[in-house]
Amino acid sequence: MAQQEGRGRPTMKDVAEAAGVSRALVSIVFRDAPGAGEETRRHVREVAERLGYRVDRRAQLLRQSRTRTLGVVFDVHAAFHGEIVEELYPAADSRGLALSLSAITPMRTEEIAVESLLDERVEGLVLLGSALPAAALMDVADRLPSVAVARPTGGAMPAARTDDRAGGRLAARHLVELGRRRVVYLDGGDVAGGRERREGHLEAMAEAGLPADVVAGGLDEEAGVRAARELLDRSQLPDAVAAFNDRCAIGVLDVLLRAGVDVPREIAVIGFDDIRAGRLETIGLSTIAQDAAGLASDAVDLVVDGRPGAERVRAPRLVVRRTTGG
């Protein structure tokens, strides 16, 4: 059937809706990737033919380029991203691949960072902590092999991540086991892993029969400073703080120590990620560690092996240091 007058060229989304399948499955069919039966493939192709859908040949040509390079999109201000990038180099090298980096900055969006790598004709993309919606992730995955690191994708593209919900539970349970009862959680909002860490914390507090106390936190030291000042203004101080990440926790520590608060006797503090700064003896930040090397290895494997919708999830690990009494 010809395209309807007044409409643009049919898209993969149009085919998925008409065929009654997911967009990811349509992508699998037209990439001849594993994951769909012969009857499903035939049905999808028949619907596509009826709609007049044609595969984007530009994307095919892009896949045929042999740059032997993986593009990596990362947030220049995210400390943990730097640690994953460091581990990506040996992981890529073991597969005979080089890396090309493209940074997200306050003046440079993730979309621009991705497009610049596509212009370089990289053979695959690794997106660290991507904030792109599922539809945009699908669009990227349709263009070339890609993986999202440190966030769930719901099958929009392969994912390599930590079990953030389990990490949130670990941190809260550690504080409760120390006898802390007035625990504040500094929330990361809607960023990658934010919802899962918050839910894990709330689950652990509910299991302990303790009230939830969630305060807007953030991703960096400045956010921790603001949150800590708010806590100091309370009539009763909390006896523990679990922060969304280590940078936020370090900001909290700075304010508490300057205010003469005894950490951890009066207030215990725990972060998430296990970045290098938190390991310094003068800081000694207790944290929930992510396996940067494992995530990097998983990411490269998922891109190279081309497994649409696959997900590898690694367990987090509690690291006890001075700020909770370690």
Rank of each mutant, 00 (worst) to 15 (best):
E266G: 01
E266T: 08
E266A: 12
I267Y: 01
I267V: 15
I267W: 03
I267S: 04
A268F: 09
A268Y: 04
V269Y: 10
I270W: 04
G271K: 05
G271I: 01
G271W: 03
F272P: 06
D274V: 07
D274A: 14
D274F: 08
I275Y: 00
I275N: 00
R276A: 15
A277W: 07
G278W: 05
G278M: 06
G278R: 00
R279Y: 05
R279T: 12
L280W: 14
E281G: 04
E281R: 07
T282I: 13
G284R: 00
G284Q: 09
G284W: 11
G284A: 10
L285H: 10
S286R: 06
T287P: 12
T287F: 14
T287N: 11
I288L: 09
I288T: 08
I288K: 02
A289T: 11
A289E: 15
A289I: 14
Q290Y: 10
Q290P: 03
Q290T: 06
D291C: 13
D291Q: 11
D291R: 07
D291L: 15
D291E: 14
A292N: 09
A293C: 04
A293H: 08
L295W: 00
L295D: 02
A296M: 01
S297P: 02
S297W: 07
S297L: 13
D298M: 07
A299D: 04
A299H: 01
A299N: 06
A299Q: 05
D301I: 07
L302H: 05
L302K: 02
L302Q: 08
L302S: 06
V303D: 04
V303M: 10
V304I: 12
D305P: 04
